[in-house]
Design a protein around this nucleic acid. Structure first.
Lengths: 349, 349
DNA sequence: ACAAATAAGTAAAGCGCTTACCCTTTGTTC
DNA sequence: GAACAAAGGGTAAGCGCTTTACTTATTTGT
């Protein structure tokens, strides 16, 4: 036993180990381990004594060593494209919260939309032996994911989907979201509708699809010229907004597939002396802080972030416990948050 | 050597270890370790062979095991109060970015302003043997930090400071920031100035202090009634804004100590038919996306987030390498981002 | 051509913990 | 009070890697 514990005279620099606790408590390391994990049969008296010593020594078990034997690190990796994007910031927050509740920590990886970083991080997470991975970046390189599959690392696609991958998926029903937006505008009496969509992203296209269906269910075909493409960045959104504002026959309502685009549109409208919602109505998507802070408040489709996160953690942990479970895809329904950016045209007929 | 590697017939479930690589490459594990870390003397031929085998096996070294011997985990913990707050989201992004560049991963912990979570996370991070910790939450419980000190875990306070703690500190010079805001408004000819400040936070009070000094340097005393307290939340900010808007003698300019407050103020002003910047000028602090997206664009004091993050990582790694280095406090100067929310009164004299 | 120097590898001892598996005490039952 | 079962605790073998100390193969100088 001698020689395993604290080197004498170096107490201040060596962190105490299980040997130190054992020695000082006059028990074996097995006993200490058992009180640590509440396993085996240990008398109350011994337990108390050991715990007391741990506190005296300021002992914190080394979870690395534990993981090396126990096989679990209680860490999960989360891959997002951009943590500074309010949507992903909210997502991270929610994921982190549920992870904590179940005793897991999160390694956050922001890929900045770069494929190479995606690879780098996936590699890193594997090296760090995370117990599972949540992926919220659009998969560019299927290879990397196939590696995950083949190495039996549980993972889950969050808020995105890929047909080539048979993994767990937790996502918002974007089609339904788009439908919801369309339906709402129609209900409010709007007939000439435009959309600014992120056509380069699957979710943007799905939202468009839902929107289109809402209209066609109502006997209206979405005019091709009223579909404007834009990525969710301020400059791009400005350009797209101006296109809409200068359309020969201006629509009475616009559906923007992200709140950011919607807010930028509202600003551009104001600059062009077009008032929201008096002259033109706007509806967004995501219900980020932008929607809440905007003036007038932005009516928007809310992704059920908290629910998504809860399911994601739940499903992931489930498949960590039992990798055999066949993969599910869970699609949660978004909901409409009504604020003041859509005018009710019905009173005016 | 036999018996250490892959259990036959279980190749698909056991991840390959250094033993498997060694066996298959016909070398010892020491050799494999050396090519892995590029240490020692290994011939090119052997190196190539080993690398080839690693690829064939899809071998990823277990960094836990490495950390258990090598003493470093290449992981740092980051404690923020709320990852969904745009400022901290940006901070996390920047920190993560610099950490990645230096080969470190980040465990992100969002305390949600709760003391108990702070403790929980600090404990977790110690268990996970992080190499260092960056703390961006205001220290409520000095005890916990003292533990860090006593256990010789390098840590660094980010964008906050505490006089009782002698640790590394990287922060924005809030006083100078407030001064900058005041100076700018004065330069633009404003004399009747108000401030909405987070008086419950040190940074808010320092910004107020700087603002006050700018005025007094100019022979103006900041009127006590023109100092409004508010936390940085929409509802609170609305109330504070209304107080200002209904002041008997309305100020010509307002300094809000966060962008969120500033933007809410702009919205409230608009609702009250007070136009920004025509009737009242506004200047914010932080230069978050809110400022950029606002209409009119919000003139604001930018915290040098990227620089702060760079220094923070740099300093932390430095003290990981060499814990003897005496603690420094680095204060970076904020800068003014000019947009359209402040009117120049000078032309009108 | 041969010792000295250097290059290329290996064996083995941990790192701090978990976990079979084993050995003592006690208490229990008839 | 003999026989047996828990309860309480200890021993020791790893987990996958790094590293020191050491052996053996290959150059190099003269």
């Amino acid at each position: 036993m001698e020689g395993k514990g604290l080197s004498k005279g170096f107490e201040h620099i060596m962190r105490p180990t299980i040997y130190d606790v054992a020695e000082r408590a006059g028990v074996s390391i097995a006993t200490v381990s058992k009180v640590l994990n509440n396993t085996g049969n240990i008398s109350d008296r011994t337990k108390k004594k050991v715990i007391k010593v741990m506190q005296e020594l300021g002992y914190h078990p080394n979870s690395l060593a534990a993981a090396l034997t126990g096989k679990k690190t209680f860490t999960i990796g989360v891959l997002v494209p951009d943590i500074a994007n309010p949507f992903f910031a909210e997502v991270s927050r929610a994921l982190e919260n549920y992870a904590r509740e179940t005793g897991y920590a999160i390694i956050l990886c922001s890929t900045d939309y770069q494929l190479e970083r995606e690879q780098y991080y996936l590699d890193l997470l594997m090296k760090k032996q995370v117990d599972g991975i949540i992926i919220a970046t659009e998969p560019k390189d299927l290879n990397a994911f196939q590696t995950l599959q083949s190495r039996d690392i549980p993972f889950l696609m969050f808020s995105i989907d890929h047909l080539a991958l048979s993994s767990h998926v937790v996502t918002t029903d974007d089609i339904r979201g788009g439908y919801l937006a369309g339906r709402y505008l129609l209900d409010k009496g709007h007939r000439r509708l435009a959309i600014i969509a992120e056509l380069n992203r699957p979710s943007g296209r799905l939202r468009l699809e839902g929107f289109r269906r809402a209209l066609s269910d109502h006997g209206i075909e979405l005019d091709q010229r009223f579909i404007i493409n834009s990525i969710s960045k301020i400059e791009d959104a400005k350009i797209a907004s101006q296109k809409i504002l200068h359309l020969p026959e201006r629509p009475t309502a616009v559906f923007a597939t992200t709140d950011l685009i919607a807010v930028v549109f509202m600003n551009e409208a104001r600059k062009t002396n077009v008032s929201v919602p008096e002259d033109i109505s706007v509806i967004g998507f995501d219900n980020t802080i932008h929607a809440e802070i905007a003036d007038p408040g932005l009516t928007t489709i809310a992704q059920p972030i908290d629910e998504l996160a809860r399911y994601a953690i739940y499903k992931l942990l489930e498949s960590i416990e039992n990798p055999q479970i066949p993969s599910h895809r869970i699609m949660l329904t978004p909901s409409l948050i009504e604020r003041e950016s859509v005018k009710d045209l019905n009173g005016h007929c």
